[in-house]
Design a binder for these strands. Structure first.
Lengths: 342, 342
DNA sequence: TTGAAAGCGCTAACAA
DNA sequence: TTGTTAGCGCTTTCAA
């Protein structure tokens, strides 16, 4: 930092690089944005100068001028849970392979916020958007009309006009329920997820089908509405356990809910799995840490993130790509939270 | 979306708002950026028009033109761990109170990346930077010269020229060790954190001081180097347990390390806490979920995040603010992973 | 209190 | 293969 660079709050721009390397600044732009038809020697000269000067592109200017910002946005409910963390890891890994940066918008499940963000994000700064279990989907039509690239993660689009990545929710729930049935359980409760999210419905359906296929009558009393968060699941489980004829097993629609259910069951003075079996969905890192270790349906969370990124980049590179839906396989992970019917 | 707005990929700009409200676009800019001296009626007219048109500011353009982007950047090693998640929650909550957005840069502890990011971030897009346990700190001087606002989280600055938020690392480690000593332990091992991070050193020192103050000779053999991650802690604990005279208690420099140690101890065929006591640091959400529940030193992680944001905004609003260091109190949380000496 | 106009740094035609 | 130039949308003097 000599006297020259420390003068005022200015940055090194392509103009500086141009001067330093003795070419026009549009040539610099070309080199820096990877344009092919530049003489090798020129390219080298520019690159060296940029290096020497510590040039860094100004993303705002680039995207203003119509270039790619190399930033993608992620709309998430919040950062403080293992589910998002794992997906984020996948996103992040894939993104860093292609030199993209990440803008995170946390909605805290606030609908107005989601909408505002969706608009703001689509307006300039980001090249595309990853929407993790969004609630509102009204803005999708606008995205489609603008050909703005986006991918839905773990949330369906009723109109089938969106690229979406999810996993076999119905199937996973079916297997979880079947597993409990095979352990001899007949009264199996379910704590649903937030019903605005398609996966919650799919899991509920999988549960129902498994019961039906095994000649167990579906009992609406055994359905407790949750929202994918621990506190409501805690309450839901409490409700379930206070039934005149309580369940001997509970299928929680995600692991966080399973943790809430475990708490509630224990507070009811019952043991897991001896008195009540509990099974979750997701297989977040904590699932293997709780006691007893949670039996759950594994979603390949990081892979979901990775696939979503790939689908997004595909759209960015090739606008107007027809919508695809990729559904990854879930798999039952048996640990210690389920046992044969007492 | 009528024919008008759906024509091409264009956005609503201040020019549109100006036309709609019948004023010049500089007036619109004034209203939108909260300039005081605008006739109330004009302001209202502009606001209505903006509302009606669904105007959203283009951040790239704004920051290019010299305004604030209302984006702050966070440099983190990774997203997939409870420690970061909790801090992020605090950051996020505080930020949304003031309508700032968040750009996340994950370095994966890759030094080159950290440096590149730091430069790029400081170059335009963000109004300030939060650095969570950064490794490299060479770029800080440049930030200082440019008066670019930043706050270090859980990492010190030897030159004392940075704003930093951390917690009482020395003290926390001291108390943890003292607690183990009071349980009767004499051979207490420590798994350190990544020594490039100041908190790791401070915790090691706290541990040493507690030993000395209680007349226990410090034994270098009982110091196993870790890096704040579970795998290396697992190995470190294995090393510790294979000593000719192994420790009866282990102080892990963070919870993740404690989890690794638990694994190792169990694989050595020993029980926790009956045979070996383990204590952690941080109190991440998982700490209460593992079995046995982890006794640990609680850092107010979300508060650290919140305070850091406030310090950053302070600098943004008031450049040249003299560096402050805020150290928040830790507190011992006794759970089930420690017991009296066997 | 408002308008006109000069850039901010960059990309992408268009020329040469 | 390279240079010239017209904006992108916005903030901020400077005038009125």
């Amino acid at each position: 930092m000599d006297a020259n660079t420390s003068r005022k709050n200015r940055h090194v721009t392509i103009v500086d690089v141009a001067r330093e390397s003795g070419v026009s600044y549009s040539t610099v732009s070309r080199v820096l944005s990877g344009f092919e038809f530049v003489k090798d020697e020129t390219r080298q000269r520019v690159l060296n100068a940029a290096q020497r000067l510590g040039y860094v592109v100004n993303i705002g200017a680039r995207s203003l001028a119509g270039g790619k910002s190399k930033i993608i946005g992620v709309l998430v409910p919040g950062l403080d849970n293992g589910y998002i963390g794992e997906i984020a890891r996948g996103i992040d890994e894939e993104l860093s392979r292609v030199n993209y940066d990440l803008m995170v918008y946390t909605t805290h499940r606030h609908q107005g916020k989601e909408l505002t963000y969706a608009r703001a994000i689509a307006n300039g700064l980001t090249d595309g958007l990853l929407l993790i279990v969004p609630l509102v989907r009204d803005y999708l039509q606008a995205f489609q009309e603008q050909q703005f690239p986006y991918v839905l993660i773990d949330q369906g689009d009723p109109t089938n006009r969106s690229h979406v990545v999810d996993s076999t929710n119905w199937q996973g729930a079916y297997e979880a329920t079947k597993y409990l049935i095979e352990l001899g359980h007949q009264r199996i409760g379910i704590i649903t997820g937030l019903m605005e999210i398609t996966s919650a419905g799919e899991r509920l359906e999988g549960y129902k089908s498994a019961l039906t296929d095994h000649n167990i009558a579906f009992d609406p009393d055994l359905v407790a509405i949750g929202d994918f968060w621990q506190p409501s699941a805690y309450q839901a489980a409490l409700d379930l356990m206070s039934l005149k004829n309580p369940p001997t097993a509970i299928f929680a629609s995600n692991d966080l809910s399973a943790f809430g259910a475990m708490e509630a069951v224990r507070e009811s003075g019952l043991r897991i799995p001896e008195d009540v079996s509990i099974i979750g969905f997701d297989d977040v890192p904590q699932a293997a840490l709780v006691h007893p270790k949670l039996t759950t349906v594994r979603q390949p969370l990081d892979q979901i993130g990775r696939v979503a990124v790939r689908m997004l980049l595909e759209q960015i590179d090739n606008p107007g790509h027809p919508p695809r839906r990729v559904t990854l396989a879930t798999r039952l992970v048996v640990r210690d939270s389920c046992a044969s019917r007492p």
